[in-house]
Design a protein around this nucleic acid. Structure first.
Ligand SMILES: [Mn+2]
Ligand SMILES: [Mn+2]
Ligand SMILES: [Zn+2]
Ligand SMILES: [Zn+2]
Lengths: 144, 144
DNA sequence: CATATAAACTGTATTGGTTACAATTCTATT
DNA sequence: AATAGAATTGTAACCAATACAGTTTATATG
């Protein structure tokens, strides 16, 4: 069936990073991959605890920190107070609408950013955050 | 003398934004402008309280929030736990060395980032954060 | 100058996301 | 079944940031 297939795919992804594919870890990674919402710890916990009643919020924290350390998830610090997470490790930027608070991906060519100032630096990670208004909020704000 | 000249320049900068140029506000903005270190609230407070013994940390928070709202300073969320501030409002990126923790500016051409995915969006602010190793730390790490 | 009003500042209490840690449960091996 | 180690849990503690009420300072008016 499909669910076990997905479980196996995620399980082997974790095993490749020497992470034991426990049920909680698989479900957390599955949640990260299925949603493009860049969820917070609380969002992940609240969603999964319905199906995994024994789940602890500490486990969500531990698991996400483990994923980040293993480079299969990344931290999104687009907000000042709460950390968000993303399992999409491809090079892409994040736009946050200051009105509806939605955070969505946008693509850009990483190589297009000229970083001659950083010659001699080892660059491990790039985060690009844009802020503004999405088209929907822009339309509803102009009609006042 | 020079100090009063600097004070007047910062004072008129604040007045332009309808911010009353109180002593605390001028000194906080002066600290932000003189340092390129992107200081935290605690760094600013600790440095200034030596000269302004009555200074309250709440005032530092209030003042920085006021500056950010008036677009004469910006929040740097390059770290997960602590907010940093920058009075340099020009388009530039920030590089954080994961070894020595230093945060330094780098320049890039804002227009070079193709954002066709964001057609129809109103972009108000752009933050570019890079992480890695600075040349000094790179050299000291390779000699093991 | 004296008084009144508003703005700025201060100090403390509280909030909320995150981590520390010890106890418990689960998993794998013998 | 028994043991050891890993994973998970629940609570306590931490700490940056905010809320808030009280105090001080600045400005305006008579
Ligand atoms: Mn993303
Ligand atoms: Mn800067
Ligand atoms: Zn929106
Ligand atoms: Zn360094």
């Amino acid at each position: 069936m499909e669910l076990s297939n997905k479980t196996e795919i995620i399980g082997s992804m974790l095993l490749k990073e020497n992470i034991k594919p426990s049920y909680a870890r698989i479900r957390i990674m599955e949640y990260l991959l299925s949603r493009k919402s860049h969820p917070t710890v609380d969002e992940i916990y609240t969603a999964l605890v319905k199906e995994i009643p024994t789940l602890s919020k500490t486990t969500v924290y531990n698991t996400l920190n483990l994923f980040v350390k293993s480079n299969i998830a990344r931290v999104i610090t687009i907000e000042e107070n709460e950390t968000r997470y993303d399992a999409d490790m491809s090079c892409h930027g994040h736009f946050k609408c200051e009105s509806c608070k939605a955070i969505r991906d946008f693509s850009f060519k990483c190589a297009a950013i000229d970083t001659s100032d950083l010659d001699g630096f080892l660059i491990r990670e790039k985060n690009v955050y844009y802020y503004g208004l999405c088209p929907e909020c822009l339309a509803s704000e102009s009609q006042d």
